[in-house]
């Protein structure tokens, strides 16, 4: 138990573990929460809850697995309490099924993360530009459509194709290294 450590050591251990795993946790939460701002709120709440409960974390067990469990609870609570934003809601039962599927694919998903950088580099220039507009500049589809002179439908299809070719490239890479 972390409660065996003195408070300073606890803080340091927590910050180290959080730092190592924060990105994984962020991807997990964003994968389960469609709205970007909601996901960020939930992540913030997660960091707090994890810190409050850190005394119950058993050293030597998996911190990300522990964190994911807390995050999933936060997401489900958030979903149940917040009946706003009907466009972004997913059914709690569905969220749990997606979370289960993420767990099932967990190992291959983390391998896939490593291949992503290389595959991004292989995209043709206009596709890379679209990725930057959508994911780095955080532009909406309508905004991307305006800047690039496409219809919104075309932007959806383009992003869909980009994700499909990234996923194909990632699959090929993780297969060959396996």
């Amino acid at each position: 138990m972390m409660s065996d450590l003195d408070p300073n050591e606890q803080t340091e251990a927590y910050l180290t573990l959080l730092n190592e795993n924060e990105r994984k946790l962020a991807v997990y939460v964003h994968a389960l929460v469609p709205d970007f701002a909601d996901a960020e709120d939930i992540l913030q709440a997660c960091r707090l809850t994890m810190w409050k409960k850190f005394a119950t974390f058993k050293p030597g067990t998996s911190f990300p697995a522990w964190g994911k469990k807390i995050a999933l609870n936060q997401i489900l609570n958030y979903r149940r309490s917040a009946k706003r934003k009907p466009l972004h809601t997913m059914d709690p039962e569905f969220i749990e099924s997606v979370a289960k599927e993420i767990d099932r694919q967990s190992e291959s998903l983390s391998q896939r993360s490593e291949a992503l950088q290389e595959c991004l580099g292989k995209l043709p220039e206009n596709q890379r530009q679209t990725v930057v507009l959508r994911y780095y500049d955080n532009c909406g589809i309508d905004e991307i459509a305006r800047t690039t002179g496409r219809t919104e439908g075309a932007v959806y299809r383009l992003l869909s194709r980009i994700r499909a070719s990234l996923n194909e490239c990632i699959s090929a890479r993780t297969r060959s290294s396996a």
């Binding site: 992503l116 991004l120 780095y136």
Partner: peptide, 25 residues
């Protein structure tokens, strides 16, 4: 569902990884 989760995961990674995209940028 498996394919959907891979798409969601990739989408989430792209949304959250600033360093990955800053080099692309």
């Amino acid at each position: 569902m498996a394919s959907y989760v891979r798409q969601r995961w990739l989408h989430a990674e792209l949304l959250t990884d600033r360093t990955l995209l800053s080099s692309l940028d």
